[in-house]
Simulated scan of single mutants.
Amino acid sequence: MSRPERNVHIAKSVKVIEWLKTEMLDQVSNLYKGLHQANQSLISDSLASLVVVVYVLARRVGVSYREIDQNVARKLREHTREGHQLEEWYGDLSQLEEYINKR
């Protein structure tokens, strides 16, 4: 790849990363609106969009989908073992871990 092509590639990558960051903020804003309005459809759509943006942003910055999945699984195990409040009160973390493992 010649120097000018490489510079264009780098600039494009930076632009995409910046766009993904703004998309993430936009979806967090939509999530808050959905929560405020008790709009289940907007809440679900915003959360799904956030998951997609997280995976794509990870890939753009050099983190594989597999690495994200492994880190999520590790975090769930750690938090469950350490007695995280969400686990203690509701069992959310072990339920999520079980769901992920069955996929």
Rank of each mutant, 00 (worst) to 15 (best):
A38W: 10
A38G: 12
A38I: 14
A38Q: 15
A38V: 14
N39R: 07
N39Y: 01
Q40Y: 09
Q40M: 13
Q40S: 13
Q40N: 14
Q40R: 13
S41G: 05
S41W: 03
S41N: 10
L42R: 10
L42G: 04
L42C: 05
I43T: 15
I43Y: 02
I43C: 10
S44T: 14
S44A: 10
S44C: 07
S44W: 03
S44N: 07
D45W: 13
D45L: 10
D45R: 08
D45M: 12
S46W: 06
S46H: 02
S46C: 05
L47F: 06
L47V: 14
L50R: 01
L50Q: 13
V51G: 05
V51A: 11
V51L: 11
V52P: 04
V52T: 11
V52K: 12
V53H: 05
V53N: 08
V54Y: 00
V54R: 02
V54T: 15
V54L: 14
Y55C: 03
Y55L: 11
Y55E: 07
V56M: 02
V56W: 00
V56P: 01
V56S: 01
L57C: 00
L57F: 05
L57Q: 10
A58R: 04
A58K: 04
A58T: 04
A58L: 02
A58D: 03
R59G: 02
R59V: 11
R59K: 07
R60P: 01
V61H: 04
V61R: 00
V61G: 04
V61Q: 03
G62R: 08
G62S: 08
V63L: 15
V63W: 10
V63Q: 08
V63R: 12
V63K: 13
S64M: 11
S64W: 05
S64H: 08
S64F: 01
Y65W: 00
Y65D: 15
R66L: 13
E67N: 09
E67H: 12
E67T: 14
E67S: 12
E67W: 06
E67G: 07
